[in-house]
Design a protein around this nucleic acid. Structure first.
Lengths: 220, 220
DNA sequence: TTATATTTTTAGATTTATCTAAATTATATT
DNA sequence: AATATAATTTAGATAAATCTAAAAATATAA
């Protein structure tokens, strides 16, 4: 089964929301897709007729197994292309999202499989998000928010919660990227900000809000 | 200025035809694009309004300078992606065209420039066609049809005239690809076929029609 | 539990790219 | 030059993806 670019984008949007809320409703998907509720309803009918969606009028909706697999296929392509752009073409990791949004809709399955091999079958993209394999299986890694890590423990940055351009740009200024090693030195109870040491650089202070959005795992 | 996928495809089609005939007419473009003359007329109006086309009703048409530059931009992307698919992802050279037809419409200029650098700024794609640079300049190479080459002269295959799937598949069976070294041994006047030696293999015989579509240059 | 507010869907319009069929213009033939 | 033929354009229709405005269903609050 193949899908239009628009269908793929909606599938991705629904997948994203249903991971948090289970059932998704029309208005929140309209907000996610930056479109109108009426347009969402139109697409829901189309996706239901293609048997990708559990959907009863007025009752909310969610992807069924076929729909989830379709979403994971698009996510896989997106993250493989992001990896390619950063690792091979040397793009900054905070610049690749809009380009991957286009590349993810290229349809050749053989292309995806060969790209995956060419890149060395990576498990995580440059933002630390897991890359599903061709069966839709997602690698897992134990990760915690930086705000929950005990002092002096060495950890590696594995992903970022709020992947806005502002957040990514800010982390770049702190020299924090996926794979960066960190230690938490001190917490300022006044505002919850943390003093941290990034790699071999001088210590710096990040706000509680930033700390909550930086996820880390044990150094192996 | 940016273009829709459909606009880019028409621009490419017109460019292709006007290289042979100068002025292009509606029916031949309709045949090239596998569409209807009425659809061509619709698009001609659109391209004229975007100032890419010299076009008078009933009088034929051709791309102006802006239109030619737009065509060369798409051709550049197509050929760079073909090079990537063959050199990096190890696709057979006769399988990459349809995938490059999709990739050529990805819009980021920075992507194209970085891809070009990553590939080592190649001058020719895997079919031997020249890759325009970012200013639209096309590298040239002195090439002749294999049917015009004197006997015993060592030459290198540089491009293929009729790039149909059938032709590319046939050449693959003769072990002929871009870069292959050849010598013409004998011409059979009966039907114009040629006995040739391909690299270090046994001699074989190709038809006059094939010979006319294989272009070669001197071995450097 | 009735009235009010919110959410969702429907009905019908719009835009883009395509099509068919008919009309128009150009070209070829006698 | 008149007529037949071919090429091209126009007019109007269709399909996909979107929109606005109104109607219908559901949720909330007095």
């Amino acid at each position: 089964m193949s899908f239009t670019t628009s269908e793929e984008n909606y599938i991705k949007g629904i997948f994203h929301l249903q991971q948090e809320t289970g059932l998704v409703n029309t208005n929140s998907l309209a907000a996610e897709m930056q479109t109108r509720p009426a347009s969402v309803t139109d697409m829901l009918k189309k996706l239901k007729s293609k048997k990708l969606l559990q959907y009863e009028k007025y009752k909310g909706f969610k992807l069924n197994e076929a729909g989830k697999k379709a979403a994971l296929d698009v996510i896989r392509k997106h993250r493989l292309w992001e990896f390619f752009l950063v690792e091979k073409l040397k793009f900054d990791w905070d610049k690749v999202h809009p380009i991957a949004e286009e590349l993810e809709h290229i349809s050749s399955e053989e292309l995806v499989q060969r790209l995956d091999n060419f890149l060395g079958n990576p498990s995580f993209d440059p933002h630390g998000d897991p890359i599903p394999d061709k069966n839709g299986k997602i690698p897992v890694i134990k990760q915690q928010s930086l705000s929950e890590i005990p002092f002096k423990k060495n950890v590696t940055v594995s992903s970022v919660g709020n992947q806005t351009a502002q957040m990514l740009d800010m982390l770049k200024h702190y020299n924090i990227a996926i794979g960066t090693q960190l230690t938490v030195l001190k917490k300022f109870e006044f505002d919850g900000s943390l003093e941290i040491k990034v790699s071999k650089q001088n210590a710096c202070i990040i706000s509680e809000q930033v700390a909550k959005n930086v996820f880390v795992h044990d150094v192996q």
